[in-house]
């Protein structure tokens, strides 16, 4: 089985977002970059299939030289091949999906894994778009995955529960928290990763179909008031305020 895991480099979740001088993009100053946490679940699932079913795991990302860090990290965790698809970071979901599809289309991947969303654009669209462009089945926001005899059974999160999706490979599956517990890289893995070669390639894709015209920070919420007294009077004051002041009820 051949598996492709698509990774994205994103700002660390504790990053305080600042808007750049152009008024529409992220100010990269002081940003610590990490592999998107959802992509870590995707990679872990690929590595487990490598161990249990002898799958070959290729990782790929669309980005610049800085994005090599996520590929190097994937090598340290156990990926077999890593590919940097050069991109300028200006692509939208359709452009990114078309670049990944262009890269993957002739390579016979049985399974394409990725996070259910990147932490940034938060569109959750690259997975399903990639599935459509490759003509593959899809299962998104997956918390449990079983592969047997060229078929998959995936449990995906829906409102108030999960639903079971079944289909035939090839498929695109996007990971949700809960799918697995990602491993940590071993020192041996980290050392070995330094000697491995990251392939670099360029793939033509669709022109972006959307663009960010402006980015703003949410208006700061004013600090409200503290309710005084013992627990019972605080509770009563709160319910009173919610009912008569905020009119929530």
């Amino acid at each position: 089985m051949k598996i492709l895991v698509c990774l994205k480099q994103v700002p660390d979740t504790e990053t305080k977002i600042k808007v750049a001088g152009d008024g529409k993009s992220l100010d990269p100053t002081d940003v610590k970059w990490i592999t998107s946490p959802y992509d870590e679940y995707a990679l872990e699932e690929g590595l487990r299939l490598k161990e249990s079913a002898g799958a070959e795991v290729t990782v790929a990302t669309v980005g610049d030289d800085k994005a090599k860090d996520v590929l190097r990290n994937a090598f340290a965790l156990g990926a077999d091949h890593a590919v940097l698809i050069k991109g300028d970071g200006q692509g939208d979901t359709l452009a990114t999906a078309s670049i990944l599809a262009g890269f993957a289309k002739d390579k016979g991947f049985d399974l394409v894994l990725s996070g259910n969303k990147g932490l940034g654009g938060d569109n959750s669209a690259v997975g399903p778009m990639l599935a459509e462009l490759l003509g593959y089945a899809q299962a998104n926001v997956v918390v449990k995955l079983e592969i047997t005899d060229g078929k998959f059974r995936a449990e995906r999160e829906i409102e108030g529960g999960t639903e079971v999706v079944e289909g035939s490979l090839p498929a695109v599956v996007t990971a949700q928290k809960g799918l697995n517990e990602p491993r940590y890289a071993s020192l041996k893995g980290i050392m070995a990763a330094k000697k491995k070669t990251i392939e670099e390639t360029e793939v033509a894709g669709h022109a972006p179909a959307t663009g960010t015209l402006a980015m703003t920070l949410p208006a700061a919420r004013a600090e409200g008031r503290k309710l005084e007294g013992d627990a019972a009077s605080q509770a009563k004051a709160l319910m009173d305020a919610l009912k008569n002041e905020a009119k929530v009820f």
């Binding site: 700002p11 529409k24 938060d122 179909a209 960010t212 015209l213 402006a214 980015m215 703003t216």
Partner: peptide, 12 residues
């Protein structure tokens, strides 16, 4: 960024 910022998206 999960609500840390708001974007205006335009279509081409």
């Amino acid at each position: 960024y999960a609500g840390k910022a708001f974007a205006t998206t335009g279509f081409t």
